[in-house]
């Protein structure tokens, strides 16, 4: 058996390397592309995204308006381009706060164990059993509609996944040889935890955060679609889909293009997560 395994490993290496690099490159290209679109939106967008031109209402895609115009006569392409700013921001901030809170809580629970861990794990059970859209909707209603409320809601719900990941890593790592060696050298707990364990434990969370960004992006769009996120007339893809839904029979382009934009951005994050996970050897 040993031989077959070693042979597989030897022949498998190149394959594995390749299968990680391709999605990574595609992912980075897509995300980089959107980032450029967001940064240079004022230069790239042919029209003002909120300018209403009554003369060109509900026009199908043409040379002048490649993605058509909506019921207010706004240029859909320009709105998709400007929307990249908002939706990239949603994906980033929706993840960052959850990541920071979850990593901190997970490190503490995993390192100290005992009753701290017990209490935190029960809290995690509660949040996990909670239908998170219910939590998110009520938080947004309490704080008032808008992106700020959305970020608070995402942080309050999203930290759980990171806490679980980091905690599980810590439970394994804290008994590893090098952690024991570090403690025996007389370093403080805090130092061992954050200087020695965290860098090792955090890789999995970073990969996960990329796929989490997809979920956050979809949630942000869904919340805006329900009218609780980004408010009109600001150009955001979820809001655009909601606005176009009523005109679906006479203007398919108003809903189709912002949706495709979401799919493309989400694919960028997914590919990056796949590629990173494969190359770093992180199982999701």
């Amino acid at each position: 058996m040993n031989i077959s395994r070693s042979v597989n490993a030897r022949f498998g290496w190149r394959l594995k390397f390749n299968s990680g690099v391709v999605p990574l490159i595609i992912g980075i290209s897509i995300l980089g592309g959107w980032l450029l679109v967001a940064i240079f939106a004022p230069l790239l967008a042919p029209y003002d995204p909120i300018f209403q031109d009554a003369a060109v209402r509900l026009k199908p895609p043409s040379m002048a308006h490649p993605f058509g115009t909506d019921n207010f006569g706004r240029d859909v392409l320009s709105r998709v381009i400007w929307g990249a700013r908002i939706d990239l921001q949603i994906a980033t901030f929706g993840v960052v706060f959850a990541f920071v809170i979850g990593t901190t809580v997970g490190s503490i629970a995993g390192y100290y164990g005992g009753w701290v861990d017990m209490v935190l794990m029960r809290l995690i059970d509660v949040v996990l059993a909670f239908p998170f859209l219910v939590l998110m909707l009520t938080i947004i209603v309490i704080l008032g509609p808008g992106l700020g409320s959305f970020y608070v809601a995402m942080a309050l719900v999203g930290w759980v996944s990171y806490a679980r990941l980091i905690r599980a890593q810590f439970l394994v790592l804290k008994n590893s040889d090098f952690a024991i060696a570090a403690v025996s050298l007389g370093y403080s707990h805090k130092r061992v935890m954050f200087r020695h364990l965290l860098p090792n434990a955090i890789l999995g969370s970073i990969v996960f955060s990329m796929s989490d960004a997809v979920l956050v992006l979809l949630n942000g769009a869904a919340i805006s679609y329900l009218g609780l996120g980004v408010q009109p007339p600001t150009a955001e893809w979820g809001t655009m889909i909601a606005e176009g839904q009523g005109f679906i029979t006479i203007g398919w382009w108003i809903t189709t293009f912002p949706g495709l934009a979401i799919v493309l951005l989400a694919m960028g994050f997914s590919m990056l997560a796949d590629g990173l996970g494969e190359i770093l050897g992180v199982r999701q």
Partner: peptide, 22 residues
């Protein structure tokens, strides 16, 4: 020793080689 081909010989006998490249 491991890698000497003894397991591979037996896998070949029963026609179950571990990879399609072998």
């Amino acid at each position: 020793e491991s890698g000497s081909g003894k397991s591979m010989t037996c896998r070949a006998i029963i026609g179950l080689l571990p990879s399609s490249r072998i």
